[in-house]
Each structure stands twice: as C-alpha cells, then as structure tokens.
C-alpha cells in the first residue's frame, strides 16, 4: 500500500513538473518527484542509491535548476507546444505499449539466488571501469559549471568594439 502512495506521489509530481507553465515551479515539482523516487528506491531495498538520489536528484540538481532559471529568467515565448498534442500523445501511447509489451506479459521472473554481495565491493572491484567513466563525467560537469558561472562577455561587446573602428 505504501508503494502505491509513493508511486502516485511521484507520478503526480512528474506530471506537474511537465505541465507547469513556470520554470521555477517545474524545478520544484521535479525535486518532489526525486524525493518520492528516493523513498521508492529505499522501499525496494536499495538504501545507498536512495540516499544518493535524494541528495543529488532532489538537492544538487534542484539548486542548479533554480540558479540557471534565476539567470535566464522565464521565457514566455515557449509556452506553445512544439508538435501537435495528439501526435505527442500517440507517440507516448505507442512507446508505453511497446515497453509494456516487453515487460508485462512475460510476468516478472522468480528471484534467483545470488551470493551475498557488498555494495562497495561490487562498485570498486566489479565495476571499476564505470568509476573511471564517472570521474571523466564529473570533470565534464566541472567544465559545464564553469560555463554556467562564467562567460559574461557576449558578442555584443565585440560588435560594439567593431563599431568604434
């Protein structure tokens, strides 16, 4: 029963994140959706990833969104949909049907017995390549943050300098 409530809250927040006309509200609803996702992950028996999702998904990403939205501001020109809504709905129904066809009819398989594994052991020994990839990704993120914070000199100043000559 608890899973139903949490999953319902997560979907509700996700829908409002998409439907909200204000970007800031959208970011807040996304944070709510992340929090509910973290609870669901915890209920599924994955506490480590639940904590990471809560701190990164509901914390860091939300802060970044609010920061970026404060700089860029709301853009009223993008309220209209990019494609007709019926076409979008048809595509979504098609995608969901394809996904459900793969997942639902087969029924979920029975649990297979696996040896006891520790999260840190799996992470650092079995998936060491992933960790290297994550380090590379984090450096890419640092570069993104530098772009986010810097680069105030726009082309307008260059154009102004050209007019002086």
């Amino acid at each position: 029963m608890l899973e139903v409530v949490v999953a319902g809250g997560m979907i509700f927040c996700a829908v409002l994140a998409i439907r909200s006309s204000h970007l800031l509200q959208s970011a807040i609803w996304l944070a709510g959706s992340s929090a509910f996702t973290a609870i669901l992950l915890y209920l599924m028996g994955a506490p480590q990833i639940a904590v990471i999702e809560l701190s990164v998904g509901a914390g860091l990403v939300t802060v970044l969104f609010v920061f970026a939205i404060n700089i860029t501001g709301e853009d009223a020109s993008t309220v209209l949909p990019s494609i007709p809504r019926p076409v979008a709905w048809a595509a979504v129904v098609l995608a969901i049907a394809a996904f459900a066809w793969m997942v639902l009819p087969g029924q979920q398989p029975a649990l297979t017995e696996a040896g006891p594994a520790v999260f840190t052991s799996v992470l650092w020994k079995d998936r060491a390549v992933d960790m290297v990839l994550q380090v590379a990704l984090i450096f890419a993120g640092v570069l993104g943050i530098l772009t986010l914070l810097g680069g105030h000199e726009d082309t307008g100043e260059v154009a102004g300098g050209a007019h002086d000559h």
Partner: peptide, 17 residues
Amino acid sequence: ELQGQIQLGQSMALTLI
C-alpha cells in the same frame, strides 16, 4: 532486485545518476 543482484543494480544506477 528481480534477479537477486541488488548491489549490481545499485552500482549501475549510481553511474546513471
């Protein structure tokens, strides 16, 4: 979780996050 390898799933989910 269905395969009984929740730790592997967690490590993959971490990469995805």
